[in-house]
Nucleic acid binder design. Structure first.
Lengths: 243, 243
DNA sequence: CGATATGTTGAATAACGTCAAGAACAGTGG
DNA sequence: CCACTGTTCTTGACGTTATTCAACATATCG
């Protein structure tokens, strides 16, 4: 009989990549009271202008941060993997400035805002890790700005794939440097600022050149070195201390 | 005989827009020991991969956060106005993931990292304001992602002008809704992900349509309502509580 | 005043978007 | 298991936006 991992184990693992967490720190996180919510594909975990009372942590499935421009276009600003918290920023900001939508079906652990604030106040190790996590995410936003502003469409897509491959890897969600992500071409386009039609053509070319392989909605790549070169990818911005 | 304002007065004013600061909070900030550095145009206040020991606050002049892509292109990720801190994030992150370059000549107040950490630890009001300031900047990065990913070039430029107009306004740096900023078209392009040639053509059109006026390197606009409409600008992302 | 950076313009080109139609796929209920 | 339905993918033809290159004009700065 297999024991299920704790719902927050990836959250702890991810935090521990940022700052050392003592056994007591980990224990304190595991003991945080929480409820589990199951969310279907496309469901909103949080909406712009909401005033969240809880802090959600993605336990399984994928989600993204998004915002709708005035012309109706959607910009995806971040891709959230299991273990990622969706609204740490709302520990300090009352009203959300963007939405979180599920990319797949998944589970969300809901923690009470005050409980996290308490643990941040009393545990320096947890505080350090959470603040670094928040700041590392801001660093990812900056790198995405470079992606959208300075790179051509094929390099943009390749860079996004590199980032996801790397993040999968450090979490232990991918064996070797490959990974598989159930993302639509529309979503890929909304994350990179190009149309889904153009994403399709780019993927076709990357596939034909042997850089990526596609199987249904799963995209993966195995030649890390080539992809890194195409994308101009340097993982420093992820702030994972040499991982 | 006029008394000069305290070098950190705009820093305090900006923080107070985020969270209430008591007279004692303000006093504690004013009493932080600091040295003043004068930086020439194009000088670096901080370089990528540096490990800063101090935290700089812009006292006068303008600067920007930037990163160089592997193809040599520069992406400007934020424009810093007087009162902005340049590396609050390095209170927690050891190594800088981007550079800060001066846009004009200006002064930088250098505060000791430990002094800020101390004041953040002991003064809840200051802590709240600084954290909100950090998170509001992350929100600006997200809005810039929308700008680069979803808006056409003219709207992008207009949106940037709106943001700067608004930020000038709340700091009291602009009378009415106009403002003047000594920014080159090259820099405007690097901030919006378009070439300087195209920026030139866009400004020409915005000028001809009466939306902006240009005088040497100064760009300004007066019809706030029109600009807001063109840009699809909504100030909520700046987190200035209804200001 | 001369040197260098920035701004301006046109013509040619490349990158990307739009529109439209059909094919493959994923989820649904029978 | 199948037929049905809406979604996603794929492809071509064409239009638009933005880039590149190059030349010259105007500022800015020492």
């Amino acid at each position: 009989m297999e024991t299920l991992p704790h719902p927050l184990s990836l959250f702890v693992k991810d935090l521990a990549l940022r700052a050392p967490l003592s056994p007591a720190d980990r224990d304190a996180i595991y003991k945080l009271p929480h409820t589990l919510r199951i969310l279907e594909t496309s469901a909103y975990a949080l909406r712009e202008a909401d005033m969240p009372t809880h802090c959600g942590v993605l336990v399984s499935g994928f989600a993204f941060r998004q915002k709708i421009a005035s012309d109706g276009g959607r910009q995806i600003m971040a891709i959230l993997l299991p273990g990622d918290a969706i609204d740490l920023q709302n520990l300090f900001l009352d009203v959300s400035d963007h939405s979180i939508q599920m990319m797949t079906r998944g589970q969300l652990a809901m923690l009470r805002r005050e409980d996290i604030q308490e643990i941040v106040r009393t545990r320096p190790g947890v505080r350090q890790a959470i603040f670094i996590k928040i700041l590392a995410e801001a660093s990812i936003f900056r790198e995405w700005l470079v992606n959208l502003g300075q790179r051509q469409a094929p390099e943009r897509v390749a860079h996004l794939l590199c980032e996801l491959g790397f993040r999968f890897e450090v979490l232990g969600l991918a064996e070797k440097y490959g990974y598989e992500l159930p993302i639509t071409q529309e979503e890929l386009g909304d994350a990179t600022g190009i149309t889904s039609v153009h994403v399709n053509r780019i993927l076709k070319k990357l596939d034909a050149s042997g850089f990526v392989t596609r199987n249904r909605r799963q995209i993966s790549f195995s030649n890390w070195s080539d992809m890194r070169t195409i994308a101009g990818f340097n993982a420093r911005y992820l702030h994972m201390q040499g991982k």
